[in-house]
Simulated assay, not measured.
Amino acid sequence: ATALYGVPTMFIAMLDQLRRAEFDLSGLRTGIMAGATCPIEVMRRVIGEMHMSEVQIAYGMTETSPVSLQTGPADELELRVSTVGRTQPHLESKIIDEAGNVLPRGAIGELCTRGYSVMLGYWNNPESTRESIDPAGWMHTGDLATMDEQGYVRIAGRNKDMIIRGGENIYPRELEEFFFTHPVVADVQVVGVPCTRYGEEIVAWIKFHPGRSADELELQSWCKERIAHFKTPRYFKFVEEFPMTVTGKIQKFRMREISTEELREHLGKG
Rank of each mutant, 00 (worst) to 15 (best):
4 L>M: 10
6 G>T: 06
7 V>E: 08
11 F>R: 06
14 M>V: 15
14 M>L: 15
15 L>K: 06
22 E>N: 07
25 L>P: 08
25 L>S: 08
26 S>G: 11
30 T>S: 13
32 I>S: 08
33 M>N: 02
35 G>A: 09
36 A>C: 09
42 V>H: 01
42 V>T: 04
43 M>C: 12
50 M>R: 00
53 S>C: 14
54 E>Y: 03
61 M>C: 14
66 P>T: 03
67 V>R: 07
73 P>Y: 04
79 L>Y: 09
80 R>H: 01
83 T>P: 01
93 S>P: 08
95 I>G: 10
96 I>T: 11
111 L>G: 04
113 T>N: 10
116 Y>E: 12
121 G>T: 00
122 Y>R: 07
123 W>M: 11
126 P>A: 01
129 T>A: 00
132 S>W: 13
134 D>R: 00
138 W>Q: 00
139 M>A: 11
141 T>N: 06
141 T>C: 01
147 M>L: 11
149 E>V: 10
154 R>H: 10
155 I>F: 10
156 A>W: 12
162 M>S: 07
167 G>D: 08
167 G>M: 02
168 E>Y: 13
169 N>W: 00
169 N>V: 03
169 N>A: 11
181 T>H: 07
181 T>F: 04
183 P>L: 05
184 V>G: 03
189 Q>K: 15
194 P>H: 07
198 Y>L: 15
200 E>A: 10
202 I>G: 09
204 A>N: 02
207 K>F: 09
207 K>A: 12
213 S>W: 14
215 D>Y: 06
216 E>Y: 07
223 C>P: 03
226 R>A: 01
228 A>H: 13
229 H>Y: 15
229 H>G: 13
229 H>R: 14
231 K>I: 07
231 K>L: 06
232 T>K: 09
233 P>I: 01
234 R>Q: 15
247 T>Y: 10
249 K>V: 02
250 I>P: 08
250 I>S: 08
253 F>W: 14
255 M>F: 12
258 I>P: 09
260 T>W: 04
260 T>H: 02
262 E>T: 11
263 L>S: 06
265 E>F: 13
